[in-house]
Amino acid sequence: MLHQIVTMPNFKFLEDIAIADAAFEAYGDTLEELFETCALATFEVMVDTKHVKPEQKEEIQIKDLNLEDLLFDFISELVYLKDAQKVFFSKFDLKISKNEEYSLKGTIWGEKIDYKKQEVRRDVKAITYHMLEVKKIDSEWRAQVILDT
């Protein structure tokens, strides 16, 4: 049986709520999928992630009391690693669990920033708390994120 692989990015950029910056809405069936999509959307602001090879690996671990803070700290970590290691990330495999607090563990893959190989767009300075939202609507997880660029 032939399988047709369709990759549909599960996010859309929003235009009306952040004139100077980048805003997006992301969706996921699971929390992990939602966070992975948010990570991809963040790098999509900076680069065409289709041309970022997943050849360099990094482990990530974050703990927080609520989901908004967890997403804030996760995206902040990615933005930090982009500058500190000069790497764009394009593949994410996360595990999120909850006991007394939320715990995110995972592996992320990317490639050194290279203007010759990649279509670089603009820098992301930080994730903001402005209108930051993570919530479950029916069976779907949804997040709204505004990045300072």
Binding site: A84, K125, A126, Y129
Partner: peptide
């Protein structure tokens, strides 16, 4: 640059 962006992020938390 990234130095200031990180300080702002750190202290927002």
């Amino acid at each position: 640059r990234g130095f200031g962006h990180q300080i702002a992020t750190d202290y927002l938390r």
